[in-house]
């Protein structure tokens, strides 16, 4: 049953690339405690900040989008980001559920 919903995200990534958009792929690579999305969950972001898919239940998506935009701007290939509930910016991007997740973002080039 795994990889069910996110399977479509990679297809969508290719559609975006075919439409000449810059695409960053975000993947949940580790989780601790209770986190809404399992390891392997995916989201894509383009240079305009449009996104599809998810890496959490809406808790950290906005932060992932801005990280992805920086990656495109600085032209870096990849980055690992960890989100914890105890982050200083917890009110803004923390995980309300108390879990922790690590998200890997990479440019598709």
């Amino acid at each position: 049953m795994k990889n069910s919903f996110d399977e479509k995200i990679l297809d969508e990534a290719q559609d975006w690339i075919n439409a000449n958009q810059k695409v960053v792929l975000a993947t949940v690579i580790q989780t601790w405690g209770s986190s809404p999305r399992q390891v392997g969950s995916r989201m894509i972001v383009n240079e305009k900040g449009d996104f599809s898919g998810s890496v959490s239940g809406g808790c950290v998506e906005s932060a992932v989008v801005s990280e992805c935009l920086s990656l495109i701007k600085d032209n870096k290939p990849c980055k690992k980001i960890e989100f914890k509930v105890s982050n200083e910016s917890a009110w803004e991007v923390g995980l309300a559920c108390g879990g922790e997740i690590a998200v890997y973002i990479e440019q598709i080039h």
Binding site: L10, Q14, I17, L25, I108, H109
Partner: peptide, 10 residues
């Protein structure tokens, strides 16, 4: 990830 890898995955 390379575009070529993405195509191969699909």
């Amino acid at each position: 990830m390379k575009i070529k890898t993405l195509e191969e995955i699909l």
